[in-house]
Simulated scan of single mutants.
Amino acid sequence: MAEPFKNLLNAALVRQAGHHLQRAWPAFDRSRFEALAEGGLDTLELKARAGHISAALEATLPADFDAACGVLEASLAPASEGTPARPAVDGLAGWIVWPMTDYVARAGQVHPERALAALHAMTQRLTAEWALRPFIVNHPALTWDTLQRWCVDPSAHVRRLVSEGSRPRLPWGLQLKSLIADPSPTLPLLERLQDDPSDYVRRSVANHLNDIAKDHPGLVTGWLARHLPGATAERRALLRHASRTLIKRGDAGALAAWGLGAALQGHAVLVVTPAQAVLGGDGVTIEATLVSTARGPQALEVDYAVHHVKARGGATAKVFKGWRLTLAAGEQRVLRKRHALKEITTRRYHAGWHRVDLLVNGKVMAEAGFALALAGP
C-alpha cells in the first residue's frame, strides 16, 4: 500500500527543522518548537499538518516579522534548479518548507513586501503557490507588479510560481473567486511565460489555461486561434495540454483548432468486459472498434466517459483520456484500455450500473456499461 500523503510531513522533518532553525538562530527554542509541532501531529491530514507546524513556528520565531523571515531564510538549503520537493542535508528543502510558507502567508499580510521576498526564496526549495494567494487577494497591485518582475527571474521555480500561484482553481489552494470571474489579470503573465525555456514552467501555464477553460471556454479557444498557428513544438505541446478539458467536453472551437471538429465518417462499437465488476478488483476492459467509411484519413480524438453512480441515485460523468489517432480510409481499428476501479481520495464509488460512453471528436458514438459491486460484506 502506498504511503499516505499526510506522512510527507512527519516528526523526523520537524526535528530536522528544529536543528536548522537553531543553527540559523542560536536563541531558537528548539525543544519548545518540536514539542508544539509534534504534539498531535499524527492525528492530522497533510494540509492540517502544515498549519499545525506553522503555528509552532509562529510561537517560537522572533516576534519581529522581518527577523523571523531572516531566520527562516537562513535555515534553507542552497537553491537548486532540480526537483524542489526533495529534502536536503545542508538546510531545509522539500515538504517541510510548506509550513514556513504558511507562516509567511498568515503573519506577513501587514508586511507584504517582506513576505513576498521570503516566498521568493522559499519557492526555490519547494513551492509557495498556496502562500502567494492571500497576497493576490489582499494586496493585488503590489502582487501583480511583483509577478511581472518574476516572469524574468533566473530561477524556473520563481517563474513557475507566477503561473501556478495565480491559477484560479489551484488544487489545495485558496480559490481566487475574482480570477474565476475575470482571469484577465493573469493573461499578460501567461503570454510572457508560454514560451519559457523550462518545461516545468510551461506545464504550469498549460494547467493555468486549462483552469480558465472551465469557466471561460471562449477565451481559451481565442487563445488557441492566436497562438497555435506557426507554434513551435514546445508551444504546441503546451496548448494541447491546455485544451484537454475543452476537447473532453467536445468544444467545437477547440476541436476545430486541432483539426478534430468533424464527426466520424463510419461507425463505432463499444464493449466493456466483464459486465459485472468488483471495486478493488481487476477493473474492466474498454474495447472500441472504429470502422471508417471515408475516402480519406480522419484525425480522431477518442475518449470515454464513465457515468459514476452517486450516493442518492443518478450519475455524474467523468471523461477519461483514450486514444489520439489517424484512421485511414476504409480502415477498421480495435482499441483497448484497462480501466481501474479502485478507491481514490477524490472519488467515492457506489454500487450500481455504470454507463460508459465512447466519445469520438467530442461526440457520443456508442455506449455500453458494467454493474459495479462493492467489495466486502
Rank of each mutant, 00 (worst) to 15 (best):
A105H: 06
L174G: 04
G230P: 02
L142I: 11
P297H: 11
A24K: 04
H52L: 02
L119N: 05
A74Q: 08
L335C: 10
K214C: 05
S198K: 02
G352C: 07
E58Q: 12
L44V: 03
V291S: 12
A225Y: 06
F320H: 14
V110T: 15
A340K: 08
A79I: 01
L44S: 05
R355P: 00
V319A: 11
T127I: 04
H308F: 15
E331H: 08
L179Q: 05
A67I: 04
K321V: 03
I212Q: 04
E301M: 05
M100F: 10
L255E: 09
A67G: 01
A254H: 08
S243E: 04
S80Y: 11
R203N: 13
A24L: 08
L92H: 10
D64F: 14
D42G: 15
R347S: 11
W258H: 05
G173I: 04
Q298E: 11
Q265N: 08
I212P: 02
R236C: 12
A107S: 13
W258P: 00
W323A: 09
A225T: 12
E34W: 11
L13R: 12
E191I: 06
T60Y: 09
C151H: 08
S292C: 06
C151G: 06
P62H: 12
V152Y: 11
R86K: 14
A105R: 01
G362T: 06
V14Y: 13
P197E: 10
L270P: 00
Q175N: 01
R240N: 05
R240Q: 10
D211K: 08
P154W: 14
L41T: 09
R23P: 00
Y349N: 00
T285V: 14
T245G: 07
A268P: 00
L76Y: 14
R86N: 12
H20I: 01
M365H: 14
I286Q: 01
V152H: 15
S292Y: 12
R49S: 09
T83Q: 06
L239P: 02
C151F: 12
L209V: 05
